[in-house]
Amino acid sequence: MNPVRKKRLFIVLAILAGVGIAAALALSALQQNINLFYTPSQIAQGEAPAGARIRAGGLVEKGSLERGQDSLTVSFRVTDGIATVTVRYQGILPDLFREGQGIVALGRVDANGALLADEVLAKHDENYMPPEVTQALEQSGMLKHYETANRETPK
């Protein structure tokens, strides 16, 4: 092999190795950091893996919000119309967190099937519903109910 070809081969191999390593690193980082979404029904049926960080979402059940006396501990129930899941959270809830609204919580499921959330998300726009929540409600047939209830409130 002449030196020029040898040099080229070396460059090509180096690039391939670099791309391979980068892709492997990226994919493994991706694998470790994805948060799968589960509906309340799925969590109630025990489909959510214990100990792994997941996303869960649904509507906050009216009248379910309870606050701790001296700390910022809150608990509330999230529903997709079929099943409900209790969410416990320590900290400040987002501005648009309200009973009856769609939210997404990130956290781990404990032994009793409650979600210990470390993050609760509600969105910027009042009419906005997280796509996952919309789909969860569609599956359970609750979306229509929710939409009619919403339409009754004057805009």
């Binding site: 980082a29 950091n33 994805i34 948060n35 996303r55 996952e132």
Partner: peptide
Amino acid sequence: GTKLSVGPPY
């Protein structure tokens, strides 16, 4: 059809 999100640690 799997719903997931990629977290900031990634």
